[in-house]
Design a protein around this nucleic acid. Structure first.
Length: 269
DNA sequence: AACTAATGTGTAG
DNA sequence: TACACCTTAGTTA
């Protein structure tokens, strides 16, 4: 589930597995052979996430830049023969990290990493994040808050699930323009993301239901294991708060999910 | 077993 | 707007 929480979790997992080692690097798939050769045997430094980007520092200003995109996976576990298309394997005698299907897997310098980070808006999962930087752009934009929340240059790490859930939890109409949002509403959205996303880092999944709404969820979904959410992918099913059907609409090529009763707006959708 | 959609983003037409 | 990435969960047969 590659929204920001996934990448922060992976940075932690990589650091636990590889800190203090000099892993072997290879590209079983063959599409990162040269980069892997550059990293092979280099001393591992530290992994960091910023939004949905993952950066791994190695000795001598060699950095690995990974973006999983929609279907990419990075798994870390005991050494086994690779399956599927493994773009990059980092391996010690005990542990292998296998990267499949990323949209970015590249060797970078520290300067290049800094330039990449400079393009990203504040990340609710980072202690150094400044929400005012996002607000400065949001309150001057006529784009919808739904579009703004997904724009990684405005804030980073929020994807389609956290977008739908944060807007629901703050009871905000997704189509409201940034110019119309109000500072209080932005503060509520940001504060909620700052509380919500670390839960995703610890659990590896996105759960957003408040305790008082959990009962309605559990009676409607006995034994469900995946994330417990208010709106995301619940099209046509009853809202856990008001019972009216969750709505969906494609906006900028992505499905947007919301409850028109709990998140009322002035315009017809 | 086969098929589809998906948490994302860059590029080409 | 379409495609590429090429995995995986979920659905349909």
């Amino acid at each position: 589930m590659p929204e920001g929480h996934t990448l922060h979790r992976l940075a932690r997992t990589l650091n636990r597995a590889f800190t203090g080692t000099s892993p072997q690097a290879s590209s079983p798939q063959g599409r990162f052979t040269e980069g892997a050769a550059e990293l092979d045997g280099a001393a591992y430094g530290e992994a960091y996430a910023h939004g949905k980007h993952l950066f791994v520092a190695f000795a001598d200003d060699r950095w690995l830049h990974v973006h999983l995109g929609l279907i990419g996976k990075l798994t870390v576990g005991t050494v086994r023969p690779p399956y599927g298309a493994v773009r990059l394997r980092l391996a010690t005698d005990e542990t292998a990290g296998d990267l499949r299907g990323p949209i970015v897997c590249a060797l970078r310098t520290g300067d290049e990493i800094a330039a990449q980070i400079a393009q990203l808006g504040p990340d609710p999962l980072r202690a150094d994040a400044d929400p005012d930087l996002a607000w400065a752009r949001i309150h001057r934009s006529r784009r919808s808050i739904a579009a703004l929340l997904m724009d990684q240059e405005i804030l980073s790490g929020v994807g389609n699930v956290y977008r739908a859930e944060a807007l629901f939890r703050a009871r905000v109409d997704p189509f409201r323009p940034g110019t119309d949002l109000g500072r209080d509403t932005w503060d509520a959205l940001w504060t909620d993301l700052v509380e919500l996303m670390p839960l995703g880092v610890s659990t590896g999944r996105i759960d957003t239901l408040e305790p008082e709404d959990l009962e309605a969820h559990q009676s409607a979904n006995p034994g469900r294991r995946r994330g417990r959410v208010y709106a995301y992918r619940r099209t046509g099913r009853p809202c856990y708060v008001c019972g009216s059907p969750i709505r969906t609409q494609v906006v900028d090529g992505r499905n947007l999910f919301w409850c028109a009763e709990c998140q009322p707006g002035r315009r017809a959708h």
